[in-house]
């Protein structure tokens, strides 16, 4: 085949150029698709396909032994009208997210501000504070929590030594919720690092200008730091909220959803329905409700962001 370099001038007509351009675009497209093909396969085969299947399953009764039975909306109706454990799981999850996530973000922002004061050694301390974020979701830490907060565990020993009443962490609803909140807040290192990176991007001249105008530390914080940081606050809020809704391992292992379902988080109940009761249709309906809830929350944060997130 002739290539453009070997053509004589006569042969380079506008039609030829156009054809050549199209041919190149097609080749470029094909190369592009070849390169993203692993992801395309995964996206359609492991995400979109399964999502469609799960949507259909959510209108059926399916126990994996016999073929799925079409039951219309009955899974959804059942969930909201006749399943107190489902309502309880919603309540527990919301309580958890609403308490744990703001606390976690407050901690991470506070420490990021502290480390941004430019004192020596902040690198070592940020690293130390980041360690729990890495291992906090592990089974090992769940083992530790179970022992530390046990009847005769480390925490009760300390309370006792200080002359305080010991607490039955696994027998008391709010205490059980608290130890899970503590575990999540303990992992504030990752959002803290993101806040710190954001703080370091705020230009110094903004602070200098504020100083010239006679602003003190508090005023600078309210008028410069917070507005400049809102995109990062927004990002952390979205990510942490979504992760909060999906909390599974810790509740499953530490409290097992108890006592009396007080920490039966959504993901834990969904796991039980799907893989212990083998109620796949019902679990699919729950998965779609979770997607809608998370979507609604994310949308709410996005919509509200126009009022409080400041972009340059």
């Amino acid at each position: 085949m002739k290539t453009s370099e070997t053509l004589t001038e006569k042969e380079i007509t506008p039609e030829f150029v156009e054809k050549e351009r199209k041919r190149r675009n097609l080749r470029e497209s094909l190369t592009g698709y070849a390169m993203i093909s692993p992801w395309l396969l995964g996206f359609f085969g492991l995400i979109i396909g399964p999502m469609i299947y799960s949507f259909i399953l959510s209108f059926t009764d399916y126990d994996m032994l016999s073929a799925p039975q079409w039951t219309g909306f009955s899974n959804y109706v059942e969930l909201f009208t006749n399943d107190p454990r489902f309502i309880q799981s919603l309540q527990a999850t919301f309580t958890f997210v609403v308490i744990a996530i703001p606390l976690k973000l407050a901690f991470s922002l506070f420490l990021a501000l502290l480390f941004n004061t430019g004192r020596k050694g902040s690198g070592i301390f940020t690293t130390i504070y980041y360690v729990p974020s890495i291992i906090g979701g592990s089974v090992a830490i769940s083992v530790v929590w179970r022992q530390m907060f046990g009847r005769d565990g480390a925490v009760n020993t300390i309370l006792d030594a200080w002359g305080l009443d010991t607490i039955s962490f696994f027998g008391n609803s709010s205490a059980a919720m608290s130890i899970l909140v503590i575990l999540i807040v303990w992992q504030f290192g990752a959002p803290m690092i993101i806040f710190l990176a954001g703080l370091r991007q705020i230009p110094d001249d903004l602070y200098e200008a504020a100083s010239v105008d006679g602003a003190g530390i508090v005023r600078k914080f309210i008028k410069v730091t917070i507005p400049m940081l809102t995109p990062i606050i927004f990002f952390n809020l979205v990510m942490e909220t979504i992760n909060g809704f999906m909390t599974f391992t810790q509740a499953f292992l530490i409290t097992g959803g108890g006592p009396r379902d007080s920490t039966l988080f959504y993901a834990v109940y969904l796991y039980e329905v799907a893989f212990e009761f083998l109620n796949m249709g019902y679990a699919s309906a729950m998965a779609w409700i979770l997607l809608v809830i998370i979507g609604a929350f994310t949308l709410l944060i996005f919509k509200s962001s126009t009022f409080w997130v400041h972009y340059d």
Binding site: L46, L57, M246, M280, S284, L291
Partner: peptide, 9 residues
């Protein structure tokens, strides 16, 4: 959220 594809996967 991973939960959405857990069952069908």
């Amino acid at each position: 959220p991973i939960q959405i594809i857990l069952v069908p996967q």
